[in-house]
Amino acid sequence: MTSSDWSPAFTARVAGQLRRARKAAGLTVAAASEACASASLPIPATTITNLETGRRTSVDLGEFLVLSQVYRVPPVTLLFPLDAEPTVEALPGQNIPAWDALAWFTGETRLDHPAPEGSPREVLDLFRAHSDAVTTALTSARMARERRRKATLATDAGRRAALLDTVAAHEELAGEDQRELHAFRDRMRERGLTPPPLPDELGGGGPSAEGQV
Rank of each mutant, 00 (worst) to 15 (best):
Leu91Asp: 00
Arg179Trp: 02
Gln69Glu: 14
Leu202Lys: 04
Ser208Ala: 12
Arg13Ala: 13
Glu210Tyr: 00
Gln178Asp: 02
Pro116His: 00
Ala209Cys: 05
Gly118Thr: 07
Thr155Asn: 06
Met143Gln: 15
Ser58Trp: 14
Phe64Lys: 05
Asn50Gln: 09
Gln178Trp: 01
Arg110Gln: 13
Leu202His: 00
Val59Asp: 07
Gly204Gln: 10
Arg179Cys: 03
Val73Ser: 08
Ser3Asp: 15
Pro197Tyr: 05
Ala84Ser: 12
Gln17Asn: 14
Ala141Asn: 01
Thr46Met: 10
Phe80Ala: 12
Ser38Ile: 10
Arg56Leu: 13
Phe64Leu: 10
Ala84Met: 06
Val73Gln: 09
Leu138Phe: 02
Arg121Ala: 09
Ala162Ile: 08
Asn50Glu: 13
Gly107Gln: 11
Glu52Val: 04
Leu27Glu: 04
Gly118Ser: 03
Gly107Asn: 10
Cys36Gln: 05
Pro196Asp: 10
Gly118Trp: 00
Leu61Asn: 09
Thr152Ser: 12
Trp99Lys: 15
Leu91His: 08
Asp186Glu: 15
Ser68Lys: 05
Ala183Cys: 06
Leu164Cys: 07
Met1Val: 15
Arg149Trp: 11
Asp156Val: 00
Pro74Asn: 13
Gly192Leu: 01
Asp100Ile: 04
Asp132Ile: 11
Arg56Cys: 12
Leu51Pro: 01
Glu34His: 04
Phe105Gly: 02
Ala98Tyr: 08
His170Lys: 03
Pro74Arg: 09
Leu193Asn: 01
Phe184Gln: 06
Val123Cys: 02
Arg160His: 05
Asn95Phe: 10
Arg110Phe: 06
Arg56Asp: 04
Pro92Lys: 03
Leu91Gln: 13
Leu164Asp: 14
Leu198Trp: 02
Pro207Ala: 10
Ala32His: 08
Ala31Asn: 06
Leu41Tyr: 09
Gly211Gln: 08
Ser7Asn: 03
Ile96Gln: 09
Val14Lys: 06
Ala115Asp: 08
Thr106Ala: 09
Ala101Leu: 02
Thr53Gly: 04
Ala169Leu: 11
Arg148Phe: 01
Asn95His: 14
Glu201Gln: 13
Phe80Trp: 09
Glu89Asp: 04
Arg121His: 13
Ala98Gln: 05
Arg145Glu: 13
Arg142Asp: 05
Arg13His: 14
Ala101Gly: 08
Val134Phe: 00
Thr47His: 07
Gly206Val: 11
Gly206Thr: 03
Ala174Tyr: 00
Arg145Pro: 03
Ala115Pro: 03
Ala137Arg: 00
Pro116Phe: 02
Arg187Thr: 04
Glu146Gln: 13
Met143Arg: 15
Gly158Ala: 11
Leu51Cys: 03
Asp177Asn: 12
Gly206Ala: 03
Arg185Gln: 13
Glu117Asp: 11
Pro199Lys: 12
Glu172Ala: 10
Thr135Arg: 15
Arg20Gln: 12
Arg145Cys: 03
Arg128Gln: 10
Ala141Leu: 06
Thr57Ala: 11
